[in-house]
């Protein structure tokens, strides 16, 4: 990574920290403490399942909201406030700026996820009194959640490179919702006929498949995740995020900064 990308990424991370984005960790900690105490009292035998489901879903939602709401402003806010002028008048290429911003926000989300994961494991320890071997799969589910964040961050940046923050938020959130039902869309495409089948199949493959990156349910039930799936989903997320980033760079490279 070029040193300029590293500096832009670390400044993006610093912005998120100074804008008190990581304060959501406090809300998450309160949620996890409250949930584990409550779950410990009302559920018998399924405490682990509830804590893992609740904890990982909360991590995913908190992260997606942060990725969208910071990601949509990463480029447009810099143009609007003209902070970009003094950056791009230096030996910084436009693609370096976009990639630096991506890594900065991705880094913020990884740190955020790390601290929230500690909260989940502490809650698990509270309800089960000890860790089990199957808890290791929670780490894989967390890894898949981070892969989701990479895609959604790249998409938010892509929309931010040509659209207003509001529209970017709408587009990115819509894609997240539709992508979470991608398997259903594929099922629909398989059943449909004619043009509808082609359109639905095209949409199912074009839209990000967040459903396949969601292994929270199986991990909560103590089931493992196949190594081949981890590899294929990693490759899928990397390629999808890279394509969205390339799109963002292509658009931003040709944009006049009025």
């Amino acid at each position: 990574m070029s040193s300029r990308i590293r500096h832009i990424a670390s400044n993006t991370f610093r912005e998120a920290v100074r804008d008190r984005v990581l304060y959501n960790l406090i809300a998450f900690a309160v949620l996890m403490c409250g949930a584990s105490i409550l779950v410990g009292q009302i559920s018998i035998g399924i405490e682990r399942l509830v804590v893992i489901n609740l904890g990982l879903t909360a991590i995913s939602l908190f992260g997606v909201v942060i990725a969208i709401f910071i990601g949509i402003g990463l480029v447009s806010k810099e143009i609007e406030k003209r902070t970009l002028y003094t950056v791009l008048s230096r030996p910084v290429q436009r693609w370096e700026f976009i990639v630096g911003k991506f890594f900065g926000l991705a880094g913020t989300l990884v740190v955020n996820t790390f601290f929230m994961a500690i909260g989940v494991f502490l809650a698990l320890l509270y309800v089960s009194q000890r860790f089990q071997a199957a808890d290791g799969w929670v780490l894989v589910a967390l890894y898949f959640i981070v892969l989701q964040f990479l895609i959604i961050t790249a998409l938010a940046l892509f929309f931010s490179s040509f659209s207003s923050p509001l529209l970017s938020a709408v587009f990115a959130f819509s894609l997240f919702v539709i992508g979470s039902f991608a398997e259903d869309l594929r099922g629909f495409a398989a059943m449909a006929q004619g043009t509808t089948r082609w359109l639905a199949t095209g949409a199912a493959y074009l839209l990000p498949n967040f459903a396949s990156l969601n292994v929270i349910g199986s991990v909560a039930h103590g089931q493992g995740v196949a190594g081949a799936l981890i590899l294929s989903e990693t490759a899928y997320a990397m390629v999808y995020a890279a394509m969205a980033l390339c799109g963002a760079v292509l658009i931003f490279e040709h944009r006049n900064l009025k």
Binding site: S3, R4, H7, I8, N11, R14, E15, R18, D19, K81, R82, T83, Y85, T86, V87, S89, R90, P91, V92
Partner: peptide
Amino acid sequence: IGFLPEQPYFYDYLTAAELLEYYGQLS
């Protein structure tokens, strides 16, 4: 080259020294 835009606006979460440090890194 050095550029001063009209009515400049900078990253307001940074201190003056941090901002210049950042620009120095980029340059």
